[in-house]
Simulated assay, not measured.
Amino acid sequence: MTERKRIYNSPLRAEQAQRTRAAVLDAAARCFLERGYAATTMKDVAAAAGVSVQTVFGQGSKASLLLACVDRAVVGDDEETPLAQRAAFVAPVEATDRAGKLAAVRELVVRFVRQTVPMIEVFAAAAAGDPDIAEVWAEYERRRLADQRLLIGSFEPWLREGLDADRATEIAWALFTHEPITNLVRVRGWSVEEYADFLVDAVDRLLLA
């Protein structure tokens, strides 16, 4: 009789692997935010996660850890559902009246600034010093523009005369990014809510009739 290999498909093992990955990514995010990407080592991440360096490398390279942390920051969890399908993004797109859309945009901005911007700052700094990460940054910016096009395109019935959705998208894309947020919130001391109010007012005044 030929001996068969047993194939183990243990839900417990899969759950443990997910917990390990989550712990490593949590630790990596803390290290990147506290020290910056360049100054963070895999040993730092291992110490912060309470695991071996080998376990950290088992989750990927330092660059892949950064990108996973960015993805988590953008959508808020480890699920693969893209931002454009998330409830916070869908709400302003699907709202049917101007006031409701602007209110939903404000909620989206508040969430984005608090949850995402700190890691995006780390991502941008890493891209400035690493050509491989710079390529991924360029792709992130292309996706961000596409998401903005979907969002601003939903305002098309209210756009100013002579302003098409593509140009309106570019204006929103330039305003709603980490650099002006950092300048106003971190440097000038604005609250997140004040920035959100500013952006919604800018969309209303610059783009809408």
Rank of each mutant, 00 (worst) to 15 (best):
M1G: 13
I7N: 03
Y8L: 12
Y8W: 12
N9S: 08
N9D: 08
S10C: 12
S10W: 06
S10G: 04
P11C: 07
L12Y: 14
A14D: 11
E15F: 15
Q16Y: 13
R19H: 11
R19W: 06
R21N: 06
A23W: 14
D26W: 04
A29I: 06
F32R: 07
E34T: 10
E34Q: 13
G36C: 06
G36Y: 13
A39K: 14
A39W: 09
T41A: 12
K43Q: 14
K43C: 11
K43F: 14
A46Q: 09
A47C: 08
A47L: 09
A48W: 15
A49K: 00
G50T: 07
G50P: 06
V51M: 04
S52D: 05
Q54Y: 04
S61A: 02
S64K: 11
S64G: 01
C69G: 06
C69H: 04
V70A: 04
D71W: 00
G76I: 11
D77T: 13
D77F: 11
D77R: 12
T81L: 15
A84K: 09
Q85M: 13
A88G: 13
A88I: 09
F89M: 07
F89G: 13
A91P: 10
A91V: 02
P92N: 08
P92V: 02
V93F: 06
V93C: 11
D97K: 00
R98H: 02
G100H: 01
K101I: 05
K101F: 00
K101V: 04
A103M: 01
E107Q: 10
R111K: 11
F112P: 01
F112A: 04
R114D: 15
Q115H: 05
T116K: 08
P118S: 05
P118C: 02
M119T: 05
A124W: 05
A125G: 05
A128K: 03
G129I: 05
P131R: 01
P131M: 09
P131H: 04
D132S: 14
D132E: 10
V136Y: 13
W137D: 00
W137L: 01
A138E: 15
A138K: 08
Y140F: 10
Y140C: 08
R142K: 10
R142F: 07
L145W: 03
A146W: 13
D147A: 12
D147N: 10
R149P: 07
R149I: 10
L150W: 04
L150E: 07
I152H: 14
I152S: 15
S154G: 12
F155W: 03
F155G: 07
L159W: 04
R160C: 14
R160L: 10
T169L: 08
T169A: 09
E170S: 08
E170L: 15
I171E: 02
I171F: 08
A172C: 08
A172T: 09
A174G: 15
L175Q: 03
L175Y: 03
F176E: 00
F176S: 00
T177L: 07
H178N: 07
E179Q: 14
E179I: 07
R186T: 01
V187E: 12
W190H: 03
W190L: 13
E193Q: 11
F198L: 15
L199Y: 00
L199Q: 01
V200C: 01
D201R: 15
V203Q: 05
